[in-house]
Design a binder for these strands. Structure first.
Lengths: 211, 211
DNA sequence: GTCTATATTAAGATAGAC
DNA sequence: GTCTATCTTAATATAGAC
């Protein structure tokens, strides 16, 4: 029974038009990023996905169900991008810097962080869970990288990996806020530059020159 | 012609019930904080202010006009609170620490920063202006405090006051995001602790012991 | 200045045909 | 699986009485 439709795990390449369900998810991802949960109406989703009312309520129980699916997808994508920076080559400082300096659409804000400003999202344990897990995991990974840097003698022993990991994650999220308020990426870049200079002061001299 | 009504600059004490206009502004401040701009309906405002439709459209041209008034008020209040910390006693580090550690309702988020996630706010030059001015002024003031600390020999000369000021402001705004995602104030506190420890490493030893 | 209608559009979901 | 009604409630604003 061949079918051109892909499974529910559909991940088509850019060449062919995705199925209706996939278009609904992707359209919702975009709209949640642009307008948040309250600002995203089923009507707007259907228009963007080029689908009818019936399709949405066939594949999902309603707006919150669809939003949950979209949010999980977005979180997965963001977590992968962060992990790539943090597992890259170089010292602990290099890897944290790679995360801080990675390409971002700063004025559009963070697709995940944005959701924390939505009452209906944070008030729903199900919708908040993906956010919680992503930011929790992110802070853990940064803390691990920093702690590893200490063990390798790259970073000062006095540095608190858990606290500084939260600082690094907060600088990114807060940088988005400052940039959007200014309608200018400069505050984001300045905030990143500032925390990097403070971290650089924790880098021990000549640690790698023994090899 | 005596009238019990106060002027348009009404600032009544806590004892007497404010006028209708004032109740509308305060109710809108609360709702914008809780639900953002899109999530705040005229109906909800009127219920909270215990006013009728007519009152709102008598005092204001509509939702955006009332929101602008409320937003300006909120911004003014926040700016005053920040300024109080930054002009307080002690070293530059002490004053920045006072700002970072001041009492906040972390899980409710920042009433000003929250607005940057609202499409209709950042897309409106008029509504975005108060946010822009407040965060711009905040970063300026922190930068001034840090630069003054350098001149006084309290802080390392290598520190970049403008960049680090953005970092400090971003840590607060990002701390809110992380805390709301976790439904726990711990990430906020950790982020503040982290940036304070990094700043403490920039404090020059024994600067004040010469007196 | 404040109130109660009223109007218009959208949000969010359901029913049932195809 | 998808479509087009249809439904109910809310958002936002106007009109005009008091």
């Amino acid at each position: 029974m061949y079918s051109p439709r892909m499974s529910t795990q559909e991940q088509p390449g850019p060449r062919e038009r995705p199925g209706t369900r996939e278009r609904l998810v992707r359209g919702t991802q975009e709209l949640l990023w642009e307008r948040g949960y309250v600002g995203t109406s089923p009507k707007a989703i259907l228009e963007r996905a080029d689908a009818g009312q019936g399709s949405m309520y066939h594949h999902f129980t309603g707006k919150s169900d669809l939003a949950l699916t979209a949010l999980r997808r977005t979180v997965r994508d963001m977590a992968e991008a962060a992990e790539e920076c943090l597992t890259g080559p170089g010292t602990a400082y290099d890897r944290v810097a790679a995360y801080l300096l990675r390409e971002r659409q700063v004025l559009r804000g963070c697709p995940v962080g944005r959701m924390t400003q939505d009452r209906e999202v944070v008030d729903s344990p199900e919708l908040r869970a993906p956010l919680d897990e992503m930011f929790g995991r992110l802070r853990e990974r940064i803390a691990e990288v920093l702690a590893e840097g200490q063990r390798r003698g790259e970073l000062a022993g006095g540095l608190d990996p858990v606290a500084c990991a939260a600082t690094v994650a907060a600088v990114v999220q807060g940088g988005y806020v400052l940039a959007r308020a200014a309608d200018d990426t400069a505050p984001f870049d300045a905030a990143v530059r500032g925390v990097l200079s403070l971290l650089a002061a924790q880098v021990l001299p000549a640690a790698g020159l023994t090899g």
